[in-house]
């Protein structure tokens, strides 16, 4: 059943669900028996203190880690063990906590790499260039130019990303994830290390992406203010366990969350 948010966005059925995930590295349990879902069209936040297992959770969803126990269901189907590129082809794109762009390549080329899962001409056509490969490239370039326009990064189109300031690199990374035209966008600390103005810009872009393209977004973030303003539902992790799950207001008033974040007077 589709429901409407206060600002008129549509939130649909469950897009992705994780069930009873347990992930261990040797004897260290990074995640213990975690279950939650992400609904189509919503902005879902995963929060928690350092080492709570947020990035591990994201890596499980993006197929980078394989949990020892538990299941990942995507669009109503159980997902078997997969390579990350297979996950990407299914329609999941992500950004990284430490920017993972091709530093020596221009913004434009970096965004074009985001289209890689949609390129169909084989290596021979690519080598010949004229004909299908060229037509395909032009079509992809058009998509990428729309993203450049959307993110307002026209001025750095031809600039190597290694020369860009941090905030802009983050924006380019978001652009690359957008270029993949994913159903589900995973953002790993999209605002880490940004100043206030850059954070505001990034919030605006995340909301716009969600509204304009209807993309479902799951994000990890430290800045509580940002999380509470931005997201529809929040899941809180602590020491690999799920503490709470609900709307920002519910989570904010949850005693377990208050204890984990602020500590309780003894």
């Amino acid at each position: 059943m589709a429901e409407l948010t206060q600002d008129g966005r549509k939130i649909g059925d469950i897009l992705l669900e994780v069930k009873n995930i347990t992930l261990a590295f040797g004897g260290v349990k990074a995640l213990t028996n975690i279950s939650f879902d992400i609904k189509e069209g919503e902005i879902r936040a995963i929060i928690g203190p350092n080492g709570a297992g947020k990035s591990s959770m994201l890596n499980v969803i993006s197929g980078f880690y394989h949990p020892q126990q538990g299941e990942v269901w995507f669009r109503g189907q159980k997902r078997g063990p997969m390579r990350p590129y297979e996950v990407a082809r299914q329609g999941i794109a992500r950004t990284f906590q430490n920017i993972a762009l091709f530093k020596g390549m221009s913004t434009l080329d970096n965004l074009m790499t985001g289209r890689i899962t949609q390129m169909h001409t084989n290596i021979l056509w690519q080598a010949l260039w004229k004909g299908p490969a060229e037509r395909e490239e032009i079509a992809h370039r058009e998509k990428v130019e729309r993203i450049i326009d959307f993110l307002g990064i026209q001025a750095i189109r031809k600039t190597p990303v290694g020369r860009l300031p941090y905030g802009l690199q983050k924006r380019v990374e978001l652009g690359r994830a957008l270029a993949a035209e994913a159903k589900l966008l995973l953002l790993d600390e999209p605002m880490a290390g940004m100043n206030l103005e850059e954070k505001e810009d990034m919030c605006r872009f995340i909301l716009d992406v969600n509204e304009e393209f209807g993309t479902t977004i799951a994000l990890i973030e430290h800045d509580m203010g940002v999380v509470m303003d931005l997201s529809d539902r929040v899941v809180v992790l602590d020491y690999g366990k799920k503490l709470a799950d609900g709307t920002p207001n519910e989570v904010r008033n949850d005693p377990a969350v208050i204890e984990a974040y602020l500590g309780v007077g003894h």
Partner: peptide, 11 residues
């Protein structure tokens, strides 16, 4: 004759 141009989507 061209009266006006605007660069949009890179063109």
């Amino acid at each position: 004759k061209v009266a006006m141009r605007e660069k949009d989507y890179g063109i």
